[in-house]
Simulated scan of single mutants.
Amino acid sequence: MTPASMAGKVALVTGAASGLGQASAILLAGLGARVWMVDINADGLADTAARIASDGGDAQVHATDLTEPENCAAAVAAVIATDGRLDALCNVAGRMSFVHTPQMSARDYGLTMAINLHAPFHLCQAAIPHLLKADGTIVNVTSTAAFVGQAYLAAYCASKAGLTHMTKALAMEYMHQPIRINAVAPGGMMTGIVTGMTMPPDIDRTLIDRFSGLRGLVEVEEVAQVIAYLASPAARGFHGACINMDRGITAG
């Protein structure tokens, strides 16, 4: 999948301070887009912006907490106030934590759902009127956890399944209007979410191994390439799709 040029287009990428969001922002900027990068981590955003600038790209930083609905609307409003248009919304930010379900705190559950499901909804809600004017696109990052039950990740699985189905519902709602809405569902990747994660000491490792994948982890840059492709005009034939990139985890 080779993305088309994004010259003259404006993209908003969440989770851009690190990992997949950072890789996606850098790639979209390299394709010519003016990229608005959104994350709670201001230092990480500055690092991403510096990388883009060093390559001659164009990036804007918007540090905010996307767990608050009003901040999602404000992020889109900032883009429109400055650039007057939005061509692509890439909901990449995510959160996961391995935990025995009875021991998951209300705060942990709330943050997982807010970042993985509620924020994409509120961002889509704010962005869609502008994306319709630009014949734009939405790319949501879900997960293989949306399709395969994974032990100790009940909230994460629920949030990603919800985001996957929300993608399809929005695609149906706007079937006859000039907007494309798709998703990509990666398997495990070596990102900050994974490297900084802790697990309960008494988990059953055999249950974890069931969804670890026989071919290893997915490369972050490869997933970013698909995100950029779906965000670009090259993916005109995709609407309501969810592309699994999991090295065969959901094959059987």
Results as ranks from 00 to 15, higher is better:
residue 2 T to G: 12
residue 7 A to C: 11
residue 10 V to A: 08
residue 10 V to M: 07
residue 13 V to C: 02
residue 15 G to W: 02
residue 21 G to M: 07
residue 23 A to I: 05
residue 23 A to E: 09
residue 28 L to G: 02
residue 29 A to E: 04
residue 32 G to L: 11
residue 32 G to C: 05
residue 35 V to W: 09
residue 37 M to V: 02
residue 39 D to F: 03
residue 41 N to C: 03
residue 42 A to P: 08
residue 42 A to M: 06
residue 43 D to A: 08
residue 43 D to S: 09
residue 47 D to I: 14
residue 54 S to W: 09
residue 54 S to T: 08
residue 57 G to A: 02
residue 58 D to M: 01
residue 58 D to Y: 04
residue 59 A to C: 06
residue 61 V to T: 03
residue 61 V to H: 06
residue 65 D to S: 05
residue 66 L to T: 10
residue 66 L to C: 02
residue 70 E to F: 06
residue 70 E to A: 15
residue 72 C to W: 01
residue 73 A to H: 10
residue 76 V to L: 09
residue 80 I to V: 12
residue 83 D to Y: 13
residue 85 R to M: 07
residue 85 R to C: 09
residue 95 R to S: 14
residue 96 M to L: 15
residue 97 S to G: 13
residue 98 F to L: 06
residue 100 H to G: 09
residue 104 M to Y: 13
residue 105 S to D: 07
residue 106 A to T: 13
residue 109 Y to S: 13
residue 111 L to Q: 15
residue 116 N to D: 00
residue 118 H to P: 03
residue 121 F to W: 11
residue 122 H to A: 04
residue 122 H to F: 13
residue 124 C to T: 05
residue 125 Q to S: 05
residue 126 A to K: 03
residue 128 I to T: 10
residue 131 L to G: 08
residue 134 A to R: 12
residue 139 V to A: 12
residue 145 A to N: 09
residue 147 F to S: 02
residue 149 G to Y: 00
residue 152 Y to G: 01
residue 155 A to H: 07
residue 156 Y to V: 02
residue 159 S to V: 00
residue 159 S to R: 04
residue 162 G to F: 06
residue 165 H to R: 08
residue 170 L to R: 00
residue 170 L to Y: 00
residue 174 Y to D: 10
residue 175 M to G: 01
residue 177 Q to K: 15
residue 178 P to F: 00
residue 178 P to N: 15
residue 179 I to H: 11
residue 180 R to N: 02
residue 181 I to A: 05
residue 184 V to F: 12
residue 185 A to K: 13
residue 187 G to R: 07
residue 187 G to Q: 07
residue 198 T to S: 13
residue 201 P to W: 11
residue 202 D to G: 03
residue 205 R to N: 15
residue 206 T to L: 00
residue 207 L to C: 00
residue 208 I to G: 07
residue 209 D to K: 07
residue 210 R to H: 04
residue 211 F to R: 06
residue 214 L to S: 01
residue 215 R to P: 03
residue 218 V to S: 01
residue 222 E to A: 14
residue 225 Q to A: 15
residue 227 I to E: 12
residue 230 L to F: 10
residue 231 A to Y: 04
residue 231 A to C: 15
residue 234 A to W: 11
residue 234 A to D: 13
residue 235 A to Q: 11
residue 235 A to M: 08
residue 236 R to K: 14
residue 236 R to N: 13
residue 236 R to A: 15
residue 240 G to L: 03
residue 241 A to S: 15
residue 242 C to E: 14
residue 248 G to A: 00
residue 250 T to R: 03
